[in-house]
């Protein structure tokens, strides 16, 4: 090694040391279990043991999964719901963070922050139960309101056309409060001087928001969106499983609920693993492309 390299290596030794514990932990607890990916290529029978004499079936599991007619409908539902969730789960909390930022009354500001962050902690088992009541076409509050406007009641959870919208909206309702936290943190970190300077220049509040606040949180917004994109095939198992019913399967069955039925309940572990592997590859593709796009067009390295 050249002396320059040697010098840099020596200087960077502390950095390597810092990374060492993390590397060891990951090797043991992430890379070793990755052996399990082979299950996707086996007809896996747990009774024989993980390292036991399993039958290898090559790409058969993948073939079976993709030749079942339902899979395309399931994928379509998943992507549709996912994309809307990703977009709204950034837009709505950002808007709320901006609105909250405008509140001068500290007590109100703090209380609202704390209160809206509560639904995040409900399990979907419970929240779904409540939603079924609240969204009921007969006695639910929402439809009572709709009827008072002279309109027909809407079966939000029982109608296949409405189901995806309901899923997306209620998920945002549950999580936006918590996500607002992140954006508030980002907003509050912007140099106050930037605002003062622009005020002197005659900017009004709206202009300040557009030209200072939003660009100020641009990076974090992009970052979270991209990380969200990695989740494109996770449309929210917990939620959908608890809200799903037999009438809305055509628009409501997502990849994970399908995998739960096939991979766990029907004990087709190989197929479940095959789908999981496929999901990982897709996530990699999405995040990889986003990274490249961000780098090329925004000149920013996401990580």
């Amino acid at each position: 090694m050249s002396s320059k390299r040697l010098k840099q290596a020596k200087k960077n030794l502390p950095l390597h040391l810092m990374l060492l514990p993390g590397v060891v932990l990951m090797l043991v607890f992430a890379y070793v279990p990755m052996y399990g990916i082979v299950i996707a290529f086996q007809q896996f029978v747990p009774a024989k043991g993980l390292f036991g004499n399993q039958t290898w079936v090559g790409l058969d599991n993948f073939r079976i999964v993709f030749t079942y007619p339902k899979i395309w409908q399931v994928l379509r539902n998943t992507v549709w719901i996912s994309i809307w969730k990703i977009v709204l789960s950034v837009v709505v909390p950002v808007v709320f963070a901006l609105l909250l930022n405008e509140i001068r009354l500290k007590v109100f500001k703090r209380s609202v922050q704390t209160i809206i962050y509560f639904p995040y902690f409900l399990s979907w088992v419970v929240f779904a139960g409540i939603l079924i009541d609240v969204l009921s076409p007969g006695t639910g509050i929402v439809n009572t309101f709709i009827k008072s406007l002279g309109l027909d009641p809407i079966y939000f959870l029982g109608n296949e056309n409405w189901f995806p919208t309901t899923v997306i909206t209620t998920d945002i309702l549950k999580t936006f409060g918590f996500n607002t936290v992140i954006y508030l943190a980002a907003i509050s970190g912007i140099h106050p001087e930037l605002y003062d300077v622009s005020a002197v220049d005659g900017a009004n509040r709206w202009q300040q928001v557009i030209h200072i606040t939003l660009p100020g949180i641009k990076i974090i917004v992009i970052l979270l969106t991209v990380l969200g994109m990695g989740n494109i095939l996770n449309a929210g198992f917990d939620q959908v499983w608890n809200l799903l019913n037999n009438n809305v399967l055509s628009t409501g069955e997502i990849l994970d609920t399908y995998v739960y039925r096939q991979g766990i309940l029907a004990r087709l572990y190989g197929q479940g693993a095959a789908i999981a592997l496929m999901k990982s590859v897709v996530s990699l593709g999405f995040i990889g492309s986003s990274y490249v796009i961000a780098y090329k067009y925004l000149n920013y390295r996401l990580f």
Binding site: R261, A266, R267
Partner: peptide
């Protein structure tokens, strides 16, 4: 049955549910 049983059972439930509700 191990491979399609689940889905076929679901297909049945789906049809019957929609038939009862008039769809």
């Amino acid at each position: 049955m191990a491979i399609v049983g689940q889905q076929l059972g679901l297909m049945s439930l789906e049809y019957f549910t929609k038939a009862i509700s008039g769809q």
